[in-house]
Amino acid sequence: MLKNDIVDTIRDKALWMRRRAFTMVHDAQLGHPGGDFSAIDIIATLYFGVMRYDAKKPDMPERDRFIMSKGHATGALYTALCAAGYYPEDWLKTYMQPQSKLNGHPNRNYLPGVETNTGPLGHGLPVALGIAIAGQMTKSDYRTFVLTGDGELQEGSNWEAAMTAGNRKLGKFTLIVDRNRLQQGMGTEETNGLDPLDDKFRAFGWDVEVVDGHDVGALFNALSEPPGGRSKPLCIIANTIKGKGVSFMENKASWHHGVPNAEQYNTAMEELV
């Protein structure tokens, strides 16, 4: 596929994911739509442009791994895995229902394609690190991708993992930070500021790239492995907008776990085209 075709495909999938995720949140009256929307272009780029996997063989040892560390954004993850073919679209209708496989936070024992259970923040990076170390030990060529929130990086466990990844020079390890600058209650910088985030990762021994997290062409370039590979782990700081795509949701902390009424839902659907 030519790059332009790939980018078009990613855009189509991302639009479908936004609409489908918001419908799930609307129907369940539960979820985290703001963080779904900031992450969707990143996740779509991974699944529909960058990653190597076979949804029919979710345990294939050589698969690339994606760890959704910001596990609350299930609208984004569940729609991606569905669009990637891991399970039928019908399953999405059970989101949050009694005994559903689509819990409010992902569970690998319920769903194919989920690599580990997340929900408590600051768990994904260490688990992904272990996966990357296993790949290095077995001389496998799979890549390991992990997506964290930015508020999530206030958890110390991330920095413990970041130190180890830098020291071990894990060239097949990529962290994407969904840098939407909002956390649950308010902005990251007014809560416990992270800037300068790029310098922090560089100091820990990582390569750093800063991209527009809604420019799928830029994401595709940053996420694609350069010829000859890398000799350090890569941190992509993806500057994003919480609630991206729906005018009244953008950059509003209240949409962290806000859910739409019927009118808001309809307006959003008109905008998401």
């Binding site: 923040l121 600051g122 649950q184 209650g185 809560t191």
Partner: peptide, 26 residues
């Protein structure tokens, strides 16, 4: 980052200097 879920918005308004929000870092 639990001012809302702890219902401490009122406390924060009255005593902004006496609420320490360490962020997501238990």
């Amino acid at each position: 980052d639990s001012v809302g879920s702890s219902k401490l918005g009122g406390f924060q308004k009255k005593f902004p200097d006496r609420l320490i929000n360490v962020g997501i870092a238990e």
